[in-house]
Design a protein around this nucleic acid. Structure first.
Lengths: 225, 225
DNA sequence: CCTAAAAGTTGAATTTTATCAATTTTTGTA
DNA sequence: TACAAAAATTGATAAAATTCAACTTTTAGG
């Protein structure tokens, strides 16, 4: 029972499209490369495009006055910023930033909506993605609200291992500051807790390389923290 | 510039329906009364209905292992639990509980989906509500993550005043514990901060009755806290 | 390869928040 | 109205988390 819900596989949605629809979409599609740390979508700006991350990792985040919060981390083959499709004031709800060099397919929003309009099963699937994304974020909200610092950091590590990298050994794509923005803690506190986990031989961590040694204990810290 | 987004007016969406559609929906509708503190929707249960709150106030909340978090407070004439319409595992994402005696229209989900299917503008409007609800919750997430205790309590009071009760004087529909679950603080801390605000003549509070005396200062506490 | 800037680390001090315990007030119901 | 249960309040204490400052390591770019 984890607070960290796995993302849906987005790629298969294109199977619901006809040849013609794919051609129509592709005609109005461009593929853009972004460098690490480049802003792909900026919260509050007018939303005229729909993005699909082809390669790389992405963070969905809201920039506050004092701090920011990372709502979600997405890997390749996922839509980015879908919820702006139907958002009332037609702006992006959150920013999307490249966590490493990446490629993104950029669809024209009106064309995308047209295809959705004519293909109900495609449309339903897209809306499912939007809701699933929200569900993930609601659960992260709960996690930050109810868990202490160690619990949050443990939850984050488990989440990355299971849902992003799908391995016990992985290389973080985020800085310590970004990890802190993900869990809602100060950077120093995050660093210290990671070190505690290492001292207790629960993880190995060196720079951006992480290995989870004792998943059982990490889960207990998550559950009781 | 507030973290607290006002809810959309939901009632007008029914204007988008034809006479026939309204009759069709109504035929499969029942109206149910709930008492204060009754659970209307339970998170995790199978979602077979769509609810529309006709009167009263409602809390949308996730129940965690240790604490819970109130995602949103809704007043009358709003849909409740819409996001389960398209959620992958067909369960409710969050619980909905009556904050006072209320009446709720209960629609059959499959009938509701059928109407949505046949009426695109209705469908689009419903999806907008879902996204708007998410947007509100994302911003509350940011608020809880970036603000200190006083800032969160100030934000909550402003939010209630502006978006729920639309007056500077209002009667809370939540207990101190529920206020605490809304802002992610311990109850004692919430109580103490409310008392501080009263001592500083920023608000008057007596039991559930609140009056905001100095909105300017309250906003400053929100912005700098 | 060198260097400046950025990122990461650590300890100490301080602030913030939660917890605990005792008490008062309010509420719901017989 | 009376009474028990629930909710709210308050103060004292403990725990948790942040901040500040100094320092080290890593990274990016010439």
């Amino acid at each position: 029972m984890s607070n960290c819900i796995k993302d849906i596989e987005h790629l298969s949605v294109f199977d619901l499209l006809t040849e013609e629809e794919i051609i129509f979409l592709d005609k109005h599609k461009t593929t853009v490369s972004y460098k690490k740390n480049e802003t792909i979508l900026k919260q509050g700006t007018f939303a005229s495009t729909i993005l699909f991350g082809k390669s790389g990792y992405f963070k969905l985040h809201i920039e506050g006055k004092k701090k920011g919060i990372i709502l979600a981390v997405k890997k390749s083959n996922a839509f980015l910023g879908l919820s702006s499709l139907y958002y009332v004031n037609k702006t992006y709800l959150y920013s999307v930033t490249a966590l490493e060099d990446c490629e993104v397919d950029v669809y024209d929003k009106s064309i995308f909506l047209e295809v959705m309009h004519n293909n109900v099963s495609f449309s339903n699937e897209i809306i499912k993605y939007i809701n699933h994304n929200s569900a993930r974020i609601f659960n992260r909200f709960l996690c930050v609200a109810e868990k202490n610092a160690r619990g949050r950091v443990a939850d984050m590590l488990i989440c990355f291992s299971r849902n992003i990298f799908e391995r016990l050994e992985f290389t973080l794509v985020m800085t310590r500051q970004e990890l802190s923005d993900f869990v809602g803690l100060s950077m120093e506190n995050t660093v210290r807790i990671l070190k505690e986990f290492e001292d207790d031989q629960i993880i190995k961590i060196s720079g951006k390389k992480v290995e989870i040694i004792d998943m059982d204990v990490l889960q207990k810290i998550r559950d009781f923290g």
